[in-house]
Amino acid sequence: MNIDSVRNGIVLDHIKAGACMEIYKYLKLDQLDCQVAIIKNAKSSKMGKKDIIKIDSPIDIDLDVLGYIDPDITVDIIKDGHLVEKKHLALPQKLVNVIHCKNPRCITTDEKQLDAIFLLSDPEKRTYRCAYCEAERKSHR
């Protein structure tokens, strides 16, 4: 299967197989005008199977969102057809308006205009806590 190489843009590599559509949604890639290629179940020597997303435009990617979904994803920045930077992600310390609190007693469930803020509480278990009520949310993986 042939997909044109990215000239100036971003490649999201090493996405866990099956997770690309979720990333597509979180990063709001449906709102872009440029070409976006979604490759599912590509062969990977490291992972067996992986997903890849190629974006043919140098957009700003929210690395915190990506790090929260999967810190093992790599972000390749392509300029004039060359890889100029490979970004490795980490679990972000703070998430703003990425996930929302499900605790019915939390103020954010009543007052939707408040920023939904989560703070990393346990990097090993990849857990976050709501900054308002401390209810726990686990990272995706």
């Binding site: 605790n103 007693r105 103020i107 954010t108 408040l114 709501c130 308002y132 009520c133 401390e134």
Partner: peptide, 10 residues
Amino acid sequence: RHPKEGAPFA
């Protein structure tokens, strides 16, 4: 004082 958790933080 507020019945909702996190209201004073907000």
